[in-house]
Design a protein around this nucleic acid. Structure first.
Lengths: 145, 145
DNA sequence: ACAAAAAATGTTACCTCGTAACACTTATGC
DNA sequence: GCATAAGTGTTACGAGGTAACATTTTTTGT
């Protein structure tokens, strides 16, 4: 059993997935990168022999996002499987490093001290921070050589 | 002469602007908030009696962005005039607080210590940060009451 | 087990955003 | 003045996204 099948089993223990929903999560785990809805449609057709309309894919992605099995990257308009599906504990707001070359996404933990400092800095400017999902763009270890 | 006309003169000293480009920058300075391309089209038509096609507005905005007179907010897909046009010195990467209620944008300075900590945190994950333009969403001082 | 209700998915239609490619106009350099 | 470069206009279209209605599947209650 591969690593992502293991993750898929964990997900199925957390929430009951219809076959379509399971397939989309599986696709995201298989690609190991951020995908747009349309990229997922193409991938499912080519690799899983499954057809999805855009409407369907968006609904499934919305559901998976609500279940926190999938994150939406607001900047890139892409979706990525949550990196913590197999964890037993709760996680705070996700933060993402996105490789602008290969679309690989790493979900990281930003140190609490940085988060706190950021929140203070922002409060000084008079704003109240909503959820600090950070999306930072750069080059991953493979692409920066 | 109003504050934004003053800013516009400064911009024209830095780079030669065609009438269309000047009008778009002027519109952004007048609105004092973040605007999408289409919002700018509407504004220019209603307030300046100028017609722009979408293609034109995007090209003009891209140019202004390259000249760093305008910033693009990647999450909101909106554009905002740079807050530092009238400054004489160079600025680092901008960081924005966006009010999700009224679209008001404040361009802030995040303390260098936070930036450095963030960069270190990210390097530990193996990524090389590109430009750390941060866009954080919350409520401004007026909307959070 | 069956019927009703709820949930999930399919289909149709359409809107918004963004941009390639070609055409035309204006500005610049010699 | 002419050739070239830059800027803008026009046409066409794809990606992204979703409302509304229809159909199918699953769940729920008896």
């Amino acid at each position: 059993m591969s690593a992502h099948s293991h993750t898929l089993e964990h997900a199925k223990e957390q929430v009951k997935l219809t076959p379509k929903r399971e397939a989309v999560l599986n696709a995201l785990l298989m690609t190991e990168k951020a995908c747009s809805a349309y990229e997922l449609i193409d991938f499912c057709k080519a690799k899983l022999d499954l057809s999805f309309s855009a409407m369907s894919i968006y609904r499934i992605l919305d559901f998976l996002k609500e279940q926190q099995l999938v994150h939406k990257l607001e900047v890139a308009n892409k979706y990525v499987a949550c990196a913590h599906i197999s964890c037993d504990h709760q996680h705070g707001a996700p933060q993402f490093l996105i490789c602008e070359s290969c679309d690989k996404v790493k979900e990281i933990h930003i140190e609490q001290s940085i988060n706190d400092a950021l929140k203070d800095n922002i409060a000084k400017a008079g704003y109240t921070l909503k959820s600090p999902q950070l999306e930072l763009t750069g080059l991953c270890e493979n692409c920066s050589e």
